[in-house]
Amino acid sequence: MEGKPLTEPLSSFRANVETVLLGKRESVDLAIASFIAGGHVLLEDVPGTGKTTLARALSSGISGTFRRIQFTSDLLPQDIIGMHILGADRKSFVFSPGPLFANVVLADEINRSSPRAQSALLEAMSERQVTVDNRTYPLPEPFLVIATQNPYEQHGTYPLPESQLDRFNLRLRLSYPDRDSERQLIRENNLLTMRDGIPASLRPEQVRALRAEVDRVTVHDAVVDYIQRIAAATRVHPAVRLGASPRGAIGLKSTSQALALLCGRDHVTPGDVRRAAVPVLCHRVFPKGDAAGSEAAQAILEEVLSVVPSPL
């Protein structure tokens, strides 16, 4: 069983990320879980709460490539995925890959760019390949997009439509650190400190092996049933306009599996599902009327979770 040698680098990876992001253990666990389950992450919060730090820590934890794309309103698809340029021999076009060709891509302030650029990124996210001028180029494996957006700035932004939000497996909110962690942060840092330089502990092929490992985590029929009931309950909730998609349910299962693996278990418990449910489903549930916003969706999900009986 190759699971044995993998647990050690995984736990050191997790410990390293946690030293960078103080007091955010749960968010770190969820982000890593999504990462090893192969799901992209959307970080949503005010600036300066560590979104970029988390993304950089995740990427530098694996010995892969990391790129950062700053989304602006004039960003074009070519700027992301790359383009064909005339080769040095002046006879043929060669493909010049854009910043998307990396193991970890940080799409900063994704809602600032036009839908055109957004859709280019999102296609790559779900297909794991890009098509430029009838040529298809596979993206490296592992491939993870960590997008950030600032929900409080509405002016001049293009909010992601429902279908595109669905491509993200996880939406995390990195709220302010707790008091002790923040004190420690203030004490130990100045404006020039970079806290994301952690040693790489996972190689890309190990990440691939981990993904296979996640797939092997047992999901009991009762837990599958529980996931299905949660997803179904979001669709019939009276305050919901659009409920969780089947893709959301699949994402919930995979994230739960990854969480279980992270805890060193070979089976998913209802507790794993409940841990993952809000981050995985929150951005996929759209409340009715003006109540749009993550608070309302989160309240709905918490209600669903307290009402849907968990298997015992």
Partner: peptide
């Protein structure tokens, strides 16, 4: 355990 949704673990 206050709701049916809560697991034994919680």
């Amino acid at each position: 355990r206050r709701h049916p949704g809560e697991t034994l673990e919680e």
